[in-house]
Design a protein around this nucleic acid. Sequence first.
DNA 1: CTGAACTTTCAGTAAACACTGAAATACAGA
DNA 2: TCTGTATTTCAGTGTTTACTGAAAGTTCAG
Lengths: 169, 169
Amino acid sequence: MNQDFQNVRRRFITQWGALGSQWGINRTMAMIHALLLVAERELSTDEVMEELNISRGNANTNLRDLIDWGLVQRMVRPGERREYFAAEKDVWKIFCMVARERKRRETEPAQKVLEACIRDTETDDSPEAREFRRELTALSDFVSLANTVMEKVAAAEQSRVLPRILKVL
Amino acid sequence: MNQDFQNVRRRFITQWGALGSQWGINRTMAMIHALLLVAERELSTDEVMEELNISRGNANTNLRDLIDWGLVQRMVRPGERREYFAAEKDVWKIFCMVARERKRRETEPAQKVLEACIRDTETDDSPEAREFRRELTALSDFVSLANTVMEKVAAAEQSRVLPRILKVL
DNA sequence: CTGAACTTTCAGTAAACACTGAAATACAGA
DNA sequence: TCTGTATTTCAGTGTTTACTGAAAGTTCAG
């Protein structure tokens, strides 16, 4: 198989991994995702281990995390014990998955913190406490608005939403 | 000053810091930002150090990073050597700053990686290379579309954009 | 120019996070 | 049931990232 092509392919996987760590995603997870994205067929754990030079434990853990994110699916071949893995390739679906997951892990906890802090100072009507509540409420309202937007965007079809949004802007 | 209120205030700062690390933001930076957000007035480096129990170096570095992000401003009081720091409190402005910065740090590098990999396989018309390019092009197109959307949203006024987007959804 | 007040840098260290590899567990066919 | 194959877990270790504190740098009033 063409050597140059294989090199570019490997470079893509490595660099995508490096980018991943700038997002809150660990390098290996991003690399496995990249590998599966550009793989022509589903791969087994051993193939992933081999291609990326990582241990079984590492491969297993990160594959499971990718499955939790909804970015990778387990595939069973009839009559085979071994499991194979395939990445979702539709970019819009990937986007929706990531949006949903980040909402769950990031904005919802933030929302809870804000609401709790607002609630716990509710009975205090000193000027400082009022101001504190005012700040936090502004933040909280914004976060929940952002949540609503993300939710609706992620629930809709790409073909419907994006053209409309672009039109509005 | 009311003890309960001070406790909630501290809890908010701590928890906001913890949330920050889930985003790619380091804990101290998020905590300083939270502290300045709910501070009634601008604070000096020493006040930040004291309140958060961190070293001078740490405070200095993270304050500078916050300034780079555009989330915090240096304030000079006439006739005083010491510098004071104040956080931007308008949530929409905060959002725009963060969007701009994440675009610069995350989506633009991703874009470059994708484009380079597409370019470097352009002369290879084997089926695998074609498929590889197809995948990466889909990704690249999506990322650049997302970039455009972010850019326009961040450039616009909150009062104009959000109502329109909500209407569309 | 000097020295006090303040800020910045950075080598060394500490804390957080990710990875390995081997042991434990689960599963399917004989 | 037992046996071989595949997956999962996790204690120990390695790597990355963040923090400290002291030294160097900057600034300004006198």
